[in-house]
């Protein structure tokens, strides 16, 4: 007969086999019941179906960009065959790029987006920090004006903004950066203020005591702490500016400068009947860089959207 010995278990002690089996069993049971619902397979299939629906439009545009223009409207859902395929295979792309000057539009879009985002981040983060740290009538007014500007629709200022920009000769890819800084400042300043409030002031005071002037304090202490917010703001503003059609189409001198959305709209507006082949090819060219950018920076984009939404 075994004598019962009260022991305390220690790390690495072997449990009796029957206890081990019990622990294993309960662990297995718990993991299956809490993780997988009984319909899990069904939901997977449903989600896969929805994903297919999500991808189809882009695939269709891609397929149609290789068809002759007469067949695109007639049978958009069929795969190209020997009769409907363009010859040479990329001729829709080459003719479309020539018609709307896609390359220069693409370069303009890059210059405007990168330039504006860089200037917005630099200026508004400094401004947001200044507003949070210096409490005055000016900073309070500026803060509430920024919040207010976020709910004003663009149509409200569309006409007068175009006139103001025209008077100040801002109708070129560099000048439009000022307009974007002004109209995009609302959201950016608001987000930077919200985050700058949570930085402990002691850190900045310590830097000052160590002999930093405000500029050094800002670039060596504050800016690194604000980095996650900078990424969020950069992504939100970049998504807006890259895709914006109305503001550049009113502000830019359209005979000289086009952006990608303006160029695509021009394909429709400039000619009586739309060349569907060239249109499809240009749509593909407009989408590809975005998808590549998205797949590379996916993590930051999704985090940026969540952070922007929670604060905005």
């Amino acid at each position: 007969m075994a004598v019962y010995k009260p022991t305390t278990l220690q790390k690495g002690d072997q449990l009796p086999p029957e206890v081990q089996a019990l622990v294993k069993k309960s662990a297995r049971k718990k993991s299956t019941s809490s993780r997988q619902s009984p319909y899990s397979g069904l939901w997977s299939i449903l989600l896969s179906l929805i994903s297919v629906i999500y991808v189809i439009p882009i695939v269709l545009v891609f397929i149609n960009s290789f068809k002759r223009k007469a067949y695109i409207n007639k049978s958009p859902f069929s795969l190209p065959n020997a009769k409907t395929l363009v010859n040479p295979i990329l001729s829709n792309y080459t003719s479309g790029m020539q018609k709307i000057g896609f390359t220069s539009a693409f370069v303009n879009s890059i210059i405007i987006t990168v330039g504006s985002v860089f200037v917005i981040i630099l200026c508004t983060s400094m401004c947001g920090w200044y507003i949070t740290r210096v409490k005055s009538v000016f900073s309070t007014c500026m803060y509430y004006l920024c919040v207010f500007s976020m709910i004003v629709p663009f149509q409200m200022v569309m006409f007068t903004l175009a006139k103001t920009a025209d008077t100040l000769h801002l109708g070129n890819p560099i000048g439009i950066i000022v307009v974007y800084l002004g109209f995009g400042a609302g959201l950016a300043v608001f987000m930077f203020c919200g985050f700058a409030k949570s930085i402990p002031i002691e850190i900045e005071e310590a830097a000052m005591i160590d002999g930093c002037n405000p500029v050094q304090t800002y670039f060596q202490v504050v800016m690194p702490i604000l980095k996650p917010t900078c990424i969020s703001v950069a992504i939100l503003e970049a998504m807006w500016i890259w895709n914006d059609y109305l503001l550049p189409s009113l502000v830019l001198d359209k005979t000289k400068y086009k952006t990608v959305p303006i160029a695509i709209q021009y394909l429709k507006g400039g000619y009586g009947s739309v060349d569907m082949g060239a249109m499809m090819a240009m749509l593909v060219l407009a989408i590809i860089p975005i998808i590549i950018f998205y797949l590379v920076c996916q993590k930051y984009i999704i985090e940026g959207v969540v952070a922007g939404a929670v604060k905005g």
């Binding site: 200026c123 508004t124 400094m126 401004c127 920090w129 200044y130 507003i131 740290r133 210096v134 900073s139 500026m142 004006l145 920024c146 500007s149 004003v152 409200m156 200022v157 006409f159 007068t160 903004l161 006139k163 103001t164 920009a165 100040l168 801002l170 000022v178 307009v179 974007y180 800084l181 002004g182 109209f183 400042a185 609302g186 300043v189 405000p214 500029v215 800002y218």
Partner: peptide, 27 residues
């Protein structure tokens, strides 16, 4: 920090006046 107003807040303020306040008021 107040002395550094022209560096920290002025660029944004000027652009904000050009890009929003003036067009809004005129509108």
């Amino acid at each position: 920090l107040r002395i550094y107003f022209p560096l920290f807040a002025l660029p944004t303020l000027i652009a904000f006046i050009i890009g929003f306040l003036v067009p809004f008021g005129m509108g």
